[in-house]
Design a protein around this nucleic acid. Structure first.
Lengths: 206, 206
DNA sequence: TTGTTTACATACATTCTTGTTTGTATATAA
DNA sequence: TTATATACAAACAAGAATGTATGTAAACAA
């Protein structure tokens, strides 16, 4: 029995992406073969080649499915201008939300782990680096806007500019994400991630 | 002409490690073959196999040659108790020193880049992750000690504990290193790394 | 109902890569 | 001076992985 309906086909496509996630996570992207992925998805390489040109295309499909949404989400929560919450708490919530999502969403967490420590950024993958840098710039800008609002409301310690504060926060959060991912057993960073974020923000409060 | 002197042999060993650095950097660790490395070192695979068991051993040799010394160095500068410089400036200098070293030492910089974005941490390489986490703990501790001295000298904003400050600083610096490495053209982070460090520290000053 | 396309499975050819084995010239120790 | 170990080079064998080509049964359109 071959030739499924369109819905069936889309389902196998998704199963291949899911399989790739599992395989990438345990073997790393470069050591994962299409045979590994096919077996994990309980299909043959024929099916994989039908849906994807090659491993790189699967990688990008996997990335787009979770990595981009998370960035968008963070981007959105930062951009929302709700006047009932003070800007500093908004930043704190935005960062905490991201950590929350990583905690609760296994798929998200695994994809992050793959992108951070199970992938070599060379050749076809090198473009991702530029994308990451661009996303970082966007997010830093959003954080800066929030800090500017905080400054306008006289909530900030006046030592640094909103721009400098935003860069510092962004670097802090980048570091936290990296450590969060590496700290697989959760003993060092994962269990106290929210406290770290809170401390970081409190340091800026007047 | 084969059979060199011991000095010659050690020289080829070093040239193989150097070659590996170049090849790892451009092709990523997993896509680098021993043939690539041998060619770059202007020897044959025979020489490579004579000096190293396999690629993994070259990887660790490369890592030990620069990665560990840099950590040790940072560790040392933090541990030195010079009373003529205030503890906060000591932390600042220690972080700046590390950035300096990365700026000036090509080998160091390239090895960092390999370890951060040209290597997949699975199987034989997974142990490195644990080492990184351990080193981070050590460095955070040293930073904390410096903050405690700063607190004793009443230099700190009293909002956070030295422990919380140390964690925040460490995460900031981790983020900075990652961004520093990714920012290959230097336009976003490399050119202003020292300012970022200075701002980060100034935020803690009373 | 039949022809065509879809959604795969299977088979094949080729290239890469690895580890090992064998060969060899020469430094070095005895 | 000679034997032996060293520091490689070269050749070999085997397995993996990739991409492509071919086969095929069922869905769907006409």
């Amino acid at each position: 029995m071959v030739r499924k309906t369109k819905e069936d086909a889309e389902l196998t496509r998704q199963r291949i992406i899911d399989a790739a996630r599992t395989v990438f996570l345990t073997r790393g992207v470069s050591r994962s073969t299409l045979e590994h992925i096919a077996t994990e998805a309980e299909v043959t390489r024929g099916a994989v080649y039908w849906h994807f040109k090659n491993k790189t295309e699967i990688f990008y499909a996997l990335r787009d499915r979770a990595f981009l949404p998370l960035i968008d989400r963070m981007y959105d929560t930062l951009a929302i201008q709700t006047d009932d919450i003070d800007p500093l708490t908004q930043i704190e919530n935005s960062l905490s939300d991201t950590i929350n999502e990583l905690n609760e969403n296994i798929e998200m967490r695994q994809i992050y782990e793959i992108m951070m420590i199970k992938c070599e950024y060379v050749d076809e993958f090198a473009t991702v680096l530029q994308q990451i840098l661009n996303n970082c710039s966007d997010i830093t800008e959003k954080i800066q806007l929030a800090y500017e609002r905080a400054q306008a409301q006289n909530l900030l310690t006046t030592i640094l500019t909103p721009h400098a504060l935003a860069l510092d926060t962004h670097l802090f959060f980048s570091g936290l994400l990296h450590m969060w991912v590496k700290d697989a057993d959760g003993s060092r960073f994962r269990h106290q991630a929210k406290q770290l974020i809170q401390s970081h923000i409190n340091l800026r409060r007047k």
